Simulated assay, not measured.
Amino acid sequence: MGHIAVAEFLGYETTLHYGSMNYDNSEISSLLDSIYIENQYAIENDLDFEERTVFERDMEKFYADDFLVLMGGPVQTILTGMLGLIILIFRRHRIRRSGLKIADWLAVFLSLFWLREVFNLLHSILLGFIYREEGYFGGDERYISEFLDLHPGVVPVILGFIGLGLSMYVIFKIIPRRFQLIFILSGIIGGVGGFLLWFEVLGPVLIP
């Protein structure tokens, strides 16, 4: 939904699927293709041609919009996690006095959106080992690194470790000790089970 929000804001039509989203940039893509076909030699040899200004402007927009849509997912995750974390920090003294209320548990849920960054990192590394891929990083975070001309692992690793640190703070400093073990165990079981249930059973049926 973070990707979709950005794409819709930029004026593109979007489609939501159970594990991805698409946005229709075919209009600008077709325009760029037609200009390229007509001026291929000039473009490849950095020569002037009649539509060079239009081509360069639209190419810049094409890549800029693609990057912004790509950023939408991780940014939404980070903002959601930070919102929950800020609420918990402001309410931490009340939590210590009176325990976690419903609003506090909701803030815990929001703050642990940071675990997505941890999961993305571990999931991509695990798949890299299993399938013997050249790279061990994937997802939006990897593509952001590549957009910024960084090593593919820079953004995934940084966000993964930040997410791990903040999640551990919430679990071990905010959640009462008597709930920590059951919270961790139920989180692992529910997280893995929910992932498999959605991606293998429900998702393909409800949102193909």
Rank of each mutant, 00 (worst) to 15 (best):
M1L: 08
M1A: 10
H3V: 00
H3D: 00
A5T: 15
V6M: 01
V6H: 06
V6I: 15
F9K: 11
F9L: 09
L10R: 08
L10H: 12
L10M: 06
G11H: 14
G11N: 09
Y12W: 10
E13K: 15
E13C: 06
L16K: 14
H17P: 04
Y23G: 01
Y23P: 02
D24F: 08
I28V: 13
S29Y: 11
L31M: 08
L31T: 14
D33C: 00
E38D: 12
N39R: 03
Y41P: 02
Y41S: 04
I43A: 03
L47W: 10
F49W: 08
F49A: 02
F49N: 06
E50M: 01
E50D: 07
E51A: 06
F55V: 04
E56N: 07
R57W: 08
M59Q: 10
F67N: 07
F67W: 11
V69I: 15
M71K: 07
G72D: 01
G72E: 01
Q76C: 05
Q76P: 01
T77I: 15
L79Y: 09
T80Q: 02
M82F: 09
L83K: 08
G84R: 04
L85D: 06
I86Y: 12
I87A: 05
F90K: 11
F90S: 11
F90E: 12
R91F: 09
R92M: 02
H93A: 07
I95W: 13
R96T: 11
S98A: 09
K101H: 15
D104A: 03
L106V: 15
L106I: 15
L106S: 14
A107F: 09
V108Q: 03
L110F: 15
S111W: 02
F113V: 13
L115M: 13
L115I: 15
R116N: 10
R116D: 02
E117F: 10
V118T: 14
F119V: 15
N120A: 07
N120E: 12
S124E: 09
S124P: 04
I125L: 04
L127I: 13
G128V: 15
G128L: 05
I130T: 13
E133W: 11
E134G: 06
E134V: 06
G135K: 13
Y136S: 08
G138W: 03
G139D: 05
D140K: 13
R142Y: 14
I144H: 01
S145E: 05
F147D: 11
F147A: 14
L150N: 13
H151Q: 09
H151M: 03
P152K: 08
V154W: 12
G163R: 02
L164V: 11
G165A: 06
G165V: 11
S167E: 04
V170Q: 00
V170G: 01
I171T: 13
I171E: 04
F172T: 12
K173R: 11
P176C: 03
R178A: 03
Q180E: 13
L181F: 10
I182M: 07
F183I: 12
S186Y: 13
G187K: 03
I188R: 07
I188D: 04
I189T: 15
G190P: 01
G194Y: 13
F195G: 04
W198D: 00
W198K: 01
W198S: 00
V201S: 02
P204T: 14
I207C: 00
I207D: 02
